[in-house]
C-alpha cells in the first residue's frame, strides 16, 4: 500500500475543512477528557478514545475536543472520563465501555441528558472515608 505523505494529509485536511465550515453547528464547543493512567489503559481507555472518534465520524460531530489526562484517582471504576459541555455540569463517568460511549454521545452530547448509571463522584470513597 502506498504510504500517505504529509502533503497529502494537508490536502485532505483542507478538503475536510470546507465540510466542517459547511456544517453549521451551534458553535459551542464541548470537551472530553479521558483518563489514561496505567489503570485507565489496563481497563481499556484506548478503546474508549477510539470509539469516541468512531461515533463523531459517524455522526459528523466536529465541535468537540478530545484530550487525555493521567489517573484521576478513580482506579476502581476505570475507564473514566470527564465530559464538559456548555450549560451543563461537568460530569465524570466511570466503568465506560463502547456501549457507554455510544450512550454518552447520544444522551449527554446530543440530547443534553446525563447517563446516570455511570456518573461517578470524586474524590473516591477510600479517600473521603465513610461519613
Amino acid at each position: 500500500m502506498a504510504k500517505m505523505t504529509l502533503d497529502q494529509l494537508r490536502k485532505l485536511r483542507e478538503s475536510k475543512q470546507d465540510d466542517i465550515k459547511r456544517r453549521a453547528t451551534e458553535g459551542k464547543e464541548g470537551q472530553i477528557i479521558i483518563g489514561m493512567g496505567t489503570c485507565g489503559i489496563a481497563a481499556g481507555a484506548k478503546i474508549v478514545l477510539d470509539e469516541f472518534l468512531d461515533q463523531f465520524e459517524k455522526r459528523g460531530i466536529t465541535n468537540i475536543s478530545v484530550t487525555q489526562t493521567g489517573c484521576m484517582g478513580l482506579c476502581s471504576v476505570e475507564p473514566t472520563l470527564e465530559v464538559i459541555m456548555p450549560n451543563m455540569p461537568n460530569i465524570i463517568y466511570g466503568n465506560v465501555d463502547k456501549a457507554t460511549v455510544d450512550k454518552i454521545v447520544e444522551d449527554h452530547i446530543i440530547n443534553k441528558k446525563l447517563v446516570n448509571d455511570h456518573v461517578i463522584d470524586r474524590p473516591a470513597s477510600d479517600i473521603v472515608g465513610d461519613k
Binding site: M1, A2, K3, M4, L6, L9, R10, L12, R13, K16, I20, D50, F52, L53, F56, E57, I61, T62, N63, I64, S65, V66, T67
Partner: peptide, 30 residues
C-alpha cells in the same frame, strides 16, 4: 510536523484525520 499540517491535535475532526494517517502509515508495512 503533524501539528503544522493538522492544527491542534484535540479537535475531534483533526484527530479522525490523524488516525486515518497513522493507520495508513502502519498499513504500508503490512
Amino acid at each position: 510536523e503533524l501539528i503544522e499540517v493538522l492544527g491542534n491535535l484535540e479537535n475531534a475532526s483533526n484527530l479522525i484525520l490523524l488516525r486515518d494517517f497513522l493507520r495508513n502509515q502502519e498499513d504500508s508495512l503490512k
